[in-house]
Design a protein around this nucleic acid. Structure first.
Ligand SMILES: [Mn+2]
Ligand SMILES: [Mn+2]
Ligand SMILES: [Zn+2]
Ligand SMILES: [Zn+2]
Lengths: 146, 146
DNA sequence: GTCCTAGATTAGACAGAATCTAAATACGGT
DNA sequence: ACCGTATTTAGATTCTGTCTAATCTAGGAC
């Protein structure tokens, strides 16, 4: 969407502005969910064939390192990404692996004494359970729909 | 260690007791860290060659599903496992991907209203930063050791 | 505008992790 | 001992992500 703001955020993190980076970043900012690298590649490449698979992975790595994008590891599935907008937690569905946002709220950090010499960067909360699609229907009489 | 308690926990979850499952479970209960599937296979297979690679993966999947073992996804690396003993959180090193335990403390769950129709199973805290090995040495004069 | 170079892109090979297949085996109830 | 089904197995396969080495380009210097 806002090309100039993307350019700025890239420049302030020391990354060059390229059409490929712009596309990946813009896609992540518009896309409502948490796409995988493969999904990002396919969607962006369809719009602008200049983006290659290798560059998708390269850029995602760089954007995560620059702190502009967040990577969510899901057990047994491909990693998922989102542009770091407003702070939020994540919900991961036990069954389908879908990642959804959970409204932000403060979480107590571990006591410094229990961290020892480790450096703390962030404290991430992951909520697990069944998403709306996978949760058993709890209608008035317990009947389930597929 | 305690064969019979392992047998029981398997039976109560509906899993048959097999030498392979026993070995995997026993290994996880004794091992202090968070091994990958490959590490578990190598270590156990060396002691008891009856365990195959496929079965290692099969059993880990079943044990996780049965709630006896926890799987920790680490971005860009193989999943790590631990036997569910005392409750605890996890620390993941940004640099080496090492997973370490963090003493348990209660974390506030998200408001029911923000969960909607989703089912909540657990609330997991993941602390990120640099582990003791990777943290910059902060000696009296800032000199670093390798 | 032209030149330059470190950084970026690319196709395709490669590697690692995990799953699948289909045949053989063995747990555990009777 | 027998049986039915869950489990195991080797190897192929799929899926994710990284690497290589050749090519290109963003953007600063002039
Ligand atoms: Mn998100
Ligand atoms: Mn642990
Ligand atoms: Zn789901
Ligand atoms: Zn480390």
């Amino acid at each position: 969407m806002d090309t100039e703001s993307i350019r700025e955020s890239l420049e302030t993190t020391g990354l060059r502005f390229t059409p490929q980076r712009h596309c990946v970043m813009a896609f992540l900012m518009e896309y409502p969910g948490h796409p995988t690298a493969a999904e990002i590649f396919e969607a962006v490449n369809r719009l602008d064939p200049r983006l290659s698979r290798a560059t998708t992975y390269n850029n995602l790595r760089d954007l995560v390192q620059a702190g502009l994008v967040r990577e969510v590891a899901v057990e047994g599935r491909a990693a998922r990404f989102d542009a770091k907008g407003v702070r939020h937690h994540h919900f991961i569905c036990d069954r389908c692996g879908n990642v959804e946002d959970v409204e932000w709220y403060e979480v107590p950090k571990p006591a410094l004494s229990s961290l020892g010499k480790r450096t703390l960067r962030e404290c991430e909360l992951i909520v697990r359970g069944l998403c709306t699609k996978c949760a058993p229907a709890k209608g008035r009489d317990g009947v389930s729909a597929v």
